[in-house]
């Protein structure tokens, strides 16, 4: 069976090489200045993601939100919960995290807000902030970080943000709202959603104690 599969992979690779080789030279590109002008953006990719193809992006936001819901659901059914113990208590780590967290947050916000002017956008910004939160969690332990906050509260907040994104999308797609504020608003909301989602996922992964 494995030999057959190996042959299949070799065949696919050969096929792909032939396909790409015959694709050259690549064709001319359509101009994109119109799109950026229409959406008040300097970054063509942002204009497409948040403007022309917002329809796709809405579903992408839902994919992300639902994956997190699925993770929480499956992890919740495991039942046995144990808290991720913090890494060894070293003052150096605490200091490093405390020093790093502020800049990470500010950088994330910058990446989100300026996503339509240059490289950046809501998704990377949210992921950056989410990773920063994880560093914090590793240094202080998850329980120390969220005293009294039930896991459900985070998820509810995340779905509220997702709903807000969908409503903003309704405004753009059906009512025809557009322009720079829409892009910034979408980017910031998406960043918030992704950061919250990343936090929920990492929390669930940190809490579930699996067995080999």
């Amino acid at each position: 069976m494995k030999v057959l599969g190996g042959l299949g992979i070799v065949g696919l690779v050969v096929l792909l090489v032939w396909l790409t080789w015959s694709c050259f030279p690549l064709g001319e590109l359509p101009p994109w200045e119109e799109a950026t002008a229409a959406w008040g953006s300097k970054n063509a990719v942002a204009a497409i993601v948040l403007g022309a193809r917002l329809w796709d992006t809405l579903f992408e936001v839902l994919v992300y939100a639902l994956a997190i819901a699925g993770v929480a659901l499956a992890a919740g059914s495991l039942g046995t919960k144990a808290v991720l113990p913090p890494l060894p208590e070293t003052p150096l780590l605490h200091l490093a995290v405390a020093l790093l967290l502020g800049p990470i947050g500010v950088f994330g916000l910058y990446v989100a807000v300026s996503g339509h002017l240059g490289p950046g956008g809501g998704f990377p910004a949210g992921a950056l902030v989410g990773s920063g939160l994880l560093l914090l969690a590793l240094a202080r332990g998850t329980r120390g970080l969220t005293p009294g906050w039930a896991g459900g509260a985070w998820e509810t907040g995340k779905f509220a943000v997702t709903g807000a994104i969908l409503l903003l999308g309704l405004g753009v797609l059906v009512l025809g709202a557009r322009g720079e504020p829409v892009l910034v608003g979408l980017n910031v909301l998406i960043a918030l959603e992704v950061a919250l989602g990343a936090w929920v996922v990492l929390r669930e992964f940190a809490h579930v104690r699996g067995e080999m």
Binding site: V49, D56, T57, E60, V63, Y64, L66, A67, I68, G70, V71, A74, A75, S77, L78, T80, F123, V201, E204, F205, V208, G210, E211, M212
Partner: peptide, 22 residues
């Protein structure tokens, strides 16, 4: 879009793997 979708699917798959390991 595709990068985010890949991450989402992977996270779900990994939590299923943890579930099955348990």
């Amino acid at each position: 879009t595709a990068i985010v979708i890949h991450f989402a699917v992977l996270a779900l798959a990994l939590v299923y793997v943890i579930f099955l390991s348990e």
